[in-house]
């Protein structure tokens, strides 16, 4: 029961986070394809995926050599930094303090930049466009790899969590290939809110384990942490909205 809860939250966190990252990468790859065609976009994306595969192949055996407590502590702190950064941004977006991430405008900005580059460096554009696609896939992919490794660390969950992340990426790629448009309707902030809550909860759990804390209820504590981070984040949104309304009235 407890093992299933841990597996369920790890798989859900990896799937939702990968969905967000894949949507962001797809926007850039589509922008490159629109301006310069599928060849540089596809080649850049494949090169990014290949480098990711090399990084994963090199990192995997190294991680096995790190003592478990040290690994839990390091990954826990990184997850706390990563998850709480996402959660903070999602809170500020939900409260209207910073604008929502808009895939349509990100697509417009990327295509405008590529067109501007086309005017300045017409001959090198395929190369530059391919690099843009490569960088997007590499950076968003690294986030996916980090999340997969982090939520499955030391628990033998690497295979189901990787399958879940891969499924999310393939789903986004398939939809993007079919519709040929950025996926602007994906409720990205809601997903980031949920993923930020889950990653922060995992980060807290791993950091504590790394410090030798015996959490009450063992893995079940993650569910309690998810509830507490969610309640705190929602409370922050409510308070910020109220203060905003009070200032504007």
């Amino acid at each position: 029961m407890i093992g299933n809860l841990h597996l369920g939250s790890a798989v859900a966190a990896a799937f939702l986070a990968s969905l967000v990252e894949a949507v962001e990468a797809l926007t850039i790859v589509l922008a490159v394809a629109t301006v310069r065609g599928w060849r540089p976009a596809g080649l850049g994306a494949i090169a990014g995926l290949a480098l990711l595969a090399v990084i994963v192949a090199a990192l995997g055996p190294l991680l096995d050599r790190v003592p478990l407590h040290l690994l839990q502590l390091a990954i826990g702190i990184l997850l706390l930094l990563f998850g709480m950064r996402w959660l903070r941004k999602a809170i500020l977006r939900a409260a209207g303090l910073i604008p929502l991430h808009d895939e349509a405008s990100a697509f417009e900005a990327e295509t405008a930049e590529l067109r501007d580059q086309a005017r300045r460096h017409a001959q090198r554009l395929d190369w530059l466009a391919g690099l843009a696609s490569f960088k997007a896939v590499l950076l968003e992919g690294l986030e996916v790899v980090f999340i997969v490794i982090a939520v499955s660390a030391g628990r033998g969950l690497l295979f189901p969590v990787s399958v879940s992340a891969l499924a999310a990426c393939l789903l986004v790629a398939a939809i993007g290939f079919l519709v040929h448009r950025p996926l602007a309707r994906v409720p990205e902030n809601m997903l980031k809110f949920a993923v930020g809550v889950m990653l922060s909860a995992f980060g807290l759990f791993w950091t504590g384990e790394g410090l030798g804390v015996a959490w009450p209820g063992a893995d079940l504590a993650i569910v309690a942490f998810i509830a507490l981070f969610l309640a705190t984040a929602l409370a922050a949104v409510v308070v910020l909205n109220r203060r905003g309304a009070a200032v504007s009235s």
Partner: peptide, 8 residues
């Protein structure tokens, strides 16, 4: 988390 959001 809460305090940082308020400060923002």
């Amino acid at each position: 988390l809460f305090v940082n959001a308020m400060k923002a």
